[in-house]
Design a binder for these strands. Structure first.
Lengths: 202, 202
DNA sequence: GTAATTTTAGAATGTGTATTTTAAAATGAG
DNA sequence: CTCATTTTAAAATACACATTCTAAAATTAC
């Protein structure tokens, strides 16, 4: 059954992913992808079919490895406001500060709605983040305000990714995040004491 | 002194701007730009030098006409929280809902930090929006919280532009915006009554 | 060890790209 | 009216691009 692949697939996808993150899909050539991955175009085409196939693979790699992992760690089924706050604060630390932004959001902005090679990965990633944030708030604050507050955080999160890519990292943004989570914690405290009061009455 | 230009420059820039908005810079070809603008490549090159020149012109056109106009109208030197809220709510109405997003933010995500042909226009646009939002909040709410709340709104605003381009317009986002402005209005009320109290004491 | 099969690198291919050139048509200035 | 200059459209150019082909090297299964 012929020889085995001699390159490290993970390493190739990692390199390709960073290259796409930096230059976008239309903005990078096969030649640049050869340089980035260390593979010849022959091998790339053999392994991934075409440029779009490599892009899809890099997207899936990114969503599985980076997005899903971060959401599990900071916005999983038992995550608290404090965990979620950490999710936001990691956006201000390595490796998110290299100025190349998030592959999913970059690709979203490049392709828009109309049939993009990134469509499924994009949808999956947005669903993960949305569900994670909404889940935490549903557990932590009063139900009437939870959806609106979750949406605010969702928008805040993606706003940060825009400024990250723009290289415009005001120090204030971190304060803005902390201040918003402080407000949510106050909300949680009120919610909890009200719950206790209700319990006593029963 | 030779003949005059026979095309409507405004109309050409408007078409080019929408084409760039839709396809990005790297994603659109001169041929497509000929179709979009109705001009032959000869005329385009004569008028704008090259593809990058046309892009710069389209960017400047967009920032001058759209961004600056909207900021003046809703976040000028005498704008209130209500005016600013309108700025946000217009993002949910025509013509911002065509799924092509904002040329400035799209281009930011395409090029990132490193020397982009959109650099000056991008910087000007971000400065306009930032200054407008911070200006309103500085006037309307208590100084200690004004910067953080302005940054929150700034991030919220750009988050909306991401979801707009993604074609993922949850109805909840509009509620999220309104709820945030309701909170800011409460903040303004407290700030004003405190100011009155202080005045009486003097 | 042999045969089948895959990977691999690099050359080859054809298409699409941005851009320049060409020459004719248009039109403003004197 | 005439001349100078510009716009314009279309053909021409040169290059970069994604992709395919080729043949050799590698390596697994038997």
């Amino acid at each position: 059954m012929g020889r085995n692949r001699s390159f490290d697939e993970t390493q190739v996808l990692e390199s390709a992913m960073h290259a796409f993150r930096r230059h976008g899909y239309a903005g990078i050539s096969i030649k640049q992808l050869e340089e980035a991955t260390g593979l010849s175009s022959g091998s790339l085409y053999n392994a991934y079919g075409d440029k779009e196939g490599l892009f899809r693979a890099a997207m899936a790699f990114y969503v599985d490895g980076y997005v899903a992992g971060r959401i599990e760690a900071h916005a999983g089924p038992v995550a608290t406001l404090e965990d979620l706050e950490q999710l936001f604060l990691t956006l201000f630390r390595e490796p998110m500060t290299d100025g190349n932004g998030c592959l999913v959001v970059n690709s979203t902005m490049e392709f828009g709605t109309q049939g993009s090679p990134a469509e499924e990965a994009m949808a999956r990633s947005f669903d993960l983040v949305t569900a994670g944030i909404h889940g935490v708030l549903r557990r932590e604050i009063e139900p009437e305000r939870s959806a609106a507050e979750a949406d605010k955080l969702l928008l805040l999160y993606h706003g940060i990714l825009v400024f990250s890519r723009a290289g415009r990292f005001d120090e204030g943004f971190e304060d803005a995040v902390r201040s918003q989570f402080d407000i949510l914690r106050q909300s949680r405290d009120r919610f909890r004491s009200r719950q206790q009061t209700t319990q006593k009455e029963e």
